[in-house]
Computed example of a mutant assay.
Amino acid sequence: MLERWMTPSVFAGTDATNEYELSQTVDGQARIQQHRQTFIQEADIKWLAQAGIRLLRLPIGYWALDDQPPYLSAKPQIDWLMDMARQYDLQVLLDLHAAPGAQNTSDHSGSGNTGNVQWYRRTNQQKTTQILLDITNEYGEHPALWGVELLNEPLVNTRRERWQLWWWTRQTSRTLRSKLPPHVRIVTSDCYQPAWWSGRVGSNTLDIHHYQCFSDTDNQATSLTHHRQMLDQRSGEYRNYSRQQPLIIGEWSAALPPGVASDSTEYYHCQSQLAVPANVDAWLYWSYKTESPGAWNFRDCYSKGWFDNMLS
């Protein structure tokens, strides 16, 4: 999945704000193919393995296995990554990051109309289940597969939508579970509502995304004290959730709001998160790398020593 802020050079000279729009520009598909062939190579996988990483979360779109105009299939790259992961003793969580109709309003959710969530239409839910089944049939027996994530950060605005999503999650999980080996996990997003979803995902693994740079409360804070207090509070909450089902932090980073962020404060924030027990089975940094240095770029942070002695 492409996001313009992460790889602006791919979008340079266009008005496109997301992959959907870029795919329809004159040379957009060629740009996307060039990016896929060059941005991640075997040297990256080798580096990750040597850095102590054991699990990769790969964000993919509903067009992953087959062309869905204007989107191009990414199957050759996924096949390659799965085989590279096996070669370097890594595992992969295949995360459906973009669903038919768009499951949220973000630029990565699979629609050029980012202000309109249409995933709750029954036909889009059915398509999503079939896509997940296709992914399961294609990669379910691959030795590098750690899990399949049903949806990334679906937006839930009403009680009706929440129950719709819960019912779909339950039915789709049963379908996939009958096809997957027992050791492969099915992962469910907490929709940024962990208190409601914890205990309601059956044997699935609950995915919580831990950020302290987006909420109004976090943005209004002017010191690291607030962020350390929030971290301690959430660590206790995660401990409680982990008693109800397996838990992962599917996304986290050292990023802080603009009013607090600096190289030193974000280093401290990173160290604080590594020091506080997360009470989870896995945690995954967003993201491995971007075109710019900084807190969203794990490789850059690692090279600055932010993770020394923490990944053994």
Score class of each variant (00 low, 15 high):
residue 252 W to L: 07
residue 252 W to Y: 13
residue 252 W to E: 05
residue 252 W to H: 07
residue 252 W to R: 08
residue 252 W to A: 04
residue 253 S to F: 05
residue 253 S to M: 08
residue 253 S to K: 05
residue 253 S to W: 11
residue 253 S to L: 06
residue 253 S to D: 11
residue 254 A to H: 04
residue 254 A to Q: 10
residue 255 A to G: 14
residue 255 A to K: 14
residue 255 A to I: 09
residue 256 L to A: 04
residue 256 L to V: 07
residue 256 L to R: 06
residue 257 P to I: 08
residue 257 P to M: 06
residue 258 P to V: 04
residue 258 P to D: 12
residue 258 P to G: 11
residue 259 G to L: 12
residue 259 G to C: 06
residue 259 G to A: 15
residue 259 G to N: 15
residue 260 V to Q: 01
residue 260 V to C: 03
residue 260 V to S: 01
residue 260 V to A: 01
residue 261 A to K: 12
residue 261 A to Y: 10
residue 262 S to C: 07
residue 262 S to W: 03
residue 262 S to E: 01
residue 263 D to A: 15
residue 263 D to W: 15
residue 263 D to E: 13
residue 263 D to I: 15
residue 264 S to V: 06
residue 264 S to N: 09
residue 264 S to G: 04
residue 264 S to M: 03
residue 265 T to F: 03
residue 266 E to N: 06
residue 266 E to D: 06
residue 266 E to P: 04
residue 266 E to C: 06
residue 266 E to M: 07
residue 266 E to Q: 15
residue 267 Y to R: 15
residue 267 Y to D: 11
residue 267 Y to Q: 14
residue 267 Y to V: 07
residue 267 Y to I: 01
residue 267 Y to H: 13
residue 268 Y to E: 13
residue 268 Y to H: 12
residue 268 Y to I: 11
residue 269 H to A: 11
residue 269 H to Q: 10
residue 269 H to M: 08
residue 269 H to R: 01
residue 270 C to L: 13
residue 270 C to R: 02
residue 270 C to E: 01
residue 270 C to S: 10
residue 270 C to T: 14
residue 270 C to M: 09
residue 270 C to F: 03
residue 271 Q to M: 12
residue 271 Q to W: 06
residue 271 Q to L: 08
residue 272 S to W: 13
residue 272 S to F: 05
residue 272 S to R: 14
residue 272 S to G: 13
residue 272 S to Y: 10
residue 272 S to M: 13
residue 273 Q to W: 10
residue 273 Q to V: 07
residue 273 Q to N: 04
residue 273 Q to A: 09
residue 273 Q to Y: 08
residue 273 Q to L: 11
residue 273 Q to H: 10
residue 274 L to K: 05
residue 274 L to I: 10
residue 274 L to Y: 07
residue 274 L to F: 07
residue 274 L to M: 13
residue 274 L to H: 02
residue 275 A to W: 00
residue 275 A to P: 05
residue 275 A to E: 11
residue 275 A to Q: 05
residue 275 A to D: 13
residue 276 V to C: 09
residue 276 V to S: 12
residue 277 P to V: 00
residue 277 P to G: 01
residue 277 P to R: 00
residue 277 P to T: 00
residue 278 A to Y: 04
residue 278 A to V: 04
residue 278 A to Q: 11
residue 278 A to G: 07
residue 278 A to I: 05
residue 278 A to R: 08
residue 279 N to L: 00
residue 279 N to R: 03
residue 280 V to I: 08
residue 280 V to S: 09
residue 280 V to T: 15
residue 281 D to G: 13
residue 281 D to Q: 13
residue 281 D to V: 02
residue 282 A to H: 00
residue 282 A to W: 01
residue 282 A to I: 02
residue 282 A to T: 01
residue 282 A to L: 04
residue 282 A to S: 02
residue 282 A to P: 01
residue 282 A to Y: 00
residue 282 A to F: 03
residue 283 W to A: 13
residue 283 W to L: 11
residue 283 W to K: 14
residue 284 L to R: 02
residue 284 L to E: 03
